[in-house]
């Protein structure tokens, strides 16, 4: 998943970025609201938002996105633990609310849960024909046989599965998989898609010519 991490604390921000990257996510880390301006219009699978930032409120920033119709799943990461504050955060549009301190394992699990819910299902397992995915365990099987995927291949597949049933433009998929700052060879995405088709079957990922890629809903 491509994640926008909005956290001003360098120790926590760096730790979360590294942990989530190691989990196979693409993390764009902003330390202030000002830094998010450069991300305007970028597609993300989820937003990780600290409430209190040096140049404003992360909650107000999220409200602004919601008022503009943005439905990207969002988790509040904050030290504000009062019941009223949790309610305020969830009412402002957060899909989940995690009080600091938290274990990065829990954040990763909640992230997966939020992403699944936004994709229309709470079950971490995804089936399509002979292909079975476990989004929590990050494992794939074809006709019951385990299939090894690289981190990039998994990222491409997860991005498509979370958007199952709709066409994902190539440019959006590149950003989701590689992040804002990463460079990609012009055919890198096709290479990963091709590898996935070879490992999991040609019919899994459909190319919609001139528009992008799509996987069917299970």
């Amino acid at each position: 998943m491509r994640l926008l991490l909005l956290e001003d604390d360098p120790l926590l921000g760096e730790g979360l970025r590294d942990w989530l990257t190691a989990e196979g996510h693409v993390v764009d880390w902003c330390r202030s609201l000002a830094e998010t301006l450069a991300m305007a219009g970028e597609p993300f699978d989820a937003l990780l938002v600290d409430w209190q930032l040096p140049d404003g409120s992360g909650l107000d920033w999220l409200k602004g996105r919601r008022s503009r119709g943005d439905r990207t799943p969002a988790l509040m990461l904050t030290a504000r633990d009062r019941l009223t504050q949790r309610i305020e955060g969830l009412d402002a549009g957060a899909d989940d609310y995690l009080v600091k301190p938290f274990a990065p394992e829990e954040l990763a699990a909640r992230l997966r849960a939020v992403a699944r819910r936004s994709g229309g299902g709470a079950d971490p397992r995804w089936h399509w024909q002979d292909v079975a995915l476990d989004l929590r365990a990050r494992s794939a099987t074809l006709s019951g046989a385990r299939v090894e995927l690289t981190a990039r291949e998994w990222a491409v597949l997860e991005a498509l599965v979370l958007r199952a049933g709709r066409i994902v433009p190539k440019a959006e998929l590149e950003k989701l998989v590689l992040g804002f700052e990463s460079e990609l060879a012009s055919n890198a995405l096709e290479v990963h898609v091709s590898a996935l088709r070879r490992k999991l079957g040609r019919e899994l990922i459909e190319t919609v010519r001139g528009l992008g890629y799509r996987v069917d809903k299970p």
């Binding site: 120790l11 926590l12 760096e14 730790g15 190691a22 030290a79 504000r80 633990d81 600091k100 301190p101």
Partner: peptide, 25 residues
Amino acid sequence: SAHAAHALRTPLAGIDAQLAVAART
């Protein structure tokens, strides 16, 4: 208490995240 909560909780979360990453690698 709000300031103390913020000043204590955030570094603790950072320490845990850093230790988790360090222990993994």
